[in-house]
């Protein structure tokens, strides 16, 4: 019989990945919400593959939706191979600040231990916040894991408030990704789901004062789909 290793139960390091999705009424126009649903659903097999290639990170996925208020769309931190995507529906206003507050509640060191890998937060929106975004962002950034999270934003269409999304990202050299058609949205969602997830799954250690962009080195994002027509 193989000898028991010193210490208690072993475990890979948790990596929390959270979609933060705009479900306001405008997302129901010109197929935006369905394009987002399709893009995330298509990305799942790629995420499963990346998670499988990085067995020392335990990828756990959740999703928050916001319109009139905010609530968890997938509340349980779900292992990647068990993650399923139920379609989002669009209706209401854009309470983005409340979504950030909801996420902030989960980024406390009591619920996300110090051994975790920096979480990945992906904010997707086509509009302007209708609630107190600053309060939500403040709540997020008051959490140590909020400041250390990899924060990515995708702007859907020209009406998206890029300045607000830029504040969410918090790094001047990292801009929101602009998706003006379904093909571009698919590209960006896939990039986040693969390249960003890969980097976040095996981040090398670095000093506190050394991160010019994020505390996880990010690969360059893809270009928008070249031949697609802008419809948003």
């Amino acid at each position: 019989m193989e000898r028991k290793l010193p210490g208690g139960a072993l475990s890979s390091r948790p990596l929390h990945f959270i979609w933060i999705a705009d479900c306001s009424g405008s997302m129901g126009q010109r197929g935006k919400i369905q394009a987002l649903n399709n893009a995330i659903r298509e990305a799942i097999p790629h995420m499963v593959q990346v998670a499988g290639e990085n067995p020392n990170a335990q990828v756990l996925v959740r999703a928050v939706k916001f319109s009139n208020g905010s609530q968890w769309h997938v509340a349980q931190a779900t292992p990647m191979d068990q993650f399923r995507w139920e379609d989002l529906e669009a209706d209401g206003v854009t309470d983005m600040g409340k979504a950030l507050q909801l996420v902030a509640e989960q980024l406390d060191v009591t619920t996300m231990p110090a051994r975790a890998l920096p979480p990945v937060l992906v904010l997707v929106s086509d509009g302007k916040p209708t609630d107190d975004f600053s309060a939500g962002l403040r709540a997020l950034m008051e959490k140590p894991w909020g400041t250390k999270a990899v924060r990515i934003a995708i702007a859907i269409g020209d009406d998206a408030d890029k300045a607000t999304l830029q504040r969410f990202i918090g790094h001047p050299e990292l801009e929101p990704l602009q998706a003006n058609n379904a093909e571009s949205l698919v590209r960006y969602i896939k990039w986040v789901s693969t390249a960003v997830l890969q980097s976040a799954s095996s981040p090398a250690s670095q000093t506190l004062d050394s991160s010019p962009n994020t505390n996880v080195p990010l690969p360059p994002p893809p270009e928008a789909a070249p031949d697609a027509t802008d419809v948003w």
């Binding site: 894991w145 981040p203 506190l208």
Partner: peptide
């Protein structure tokens, strides 16, 4: 040292 979180650490190379 509450700053030691995730993959970030203090270091001999820091100012």
């Amino acid at each position: 040292d509450a700053r030691l979180l995730g993959n970030e650490t203090t270091s001999l190379c820091m100012a």
